[in-house]
Amino acid sequence: MGAIGAGIAALGAGIGVGLIGRGALESMARQPEAIGDIRSNMILTAALVEGAALFAIVVGLLQGA
């Protein structure tokens, strides 16, 4: 069960990070002058999404223990 939960969490994080990447790329294409700002904010948001996913994965693995 825990492993399945971890897998679902990774799926969610994957979708989330993908959406962030898409949004960032689109805005970079639209505003190449703001690439620096967009990039650091993208990394920040991706890290937050990933943090939630890792949280879920750890909890999932613990549940399995």
Partner: peptide, 8 residues
């Protein structure tokens, strides 16, 4: 399988 990591 669930306690793969906790076996060891």
């Amino acid at each position: 399988m669930t306690n793969l990591f906790f076996l060891t």
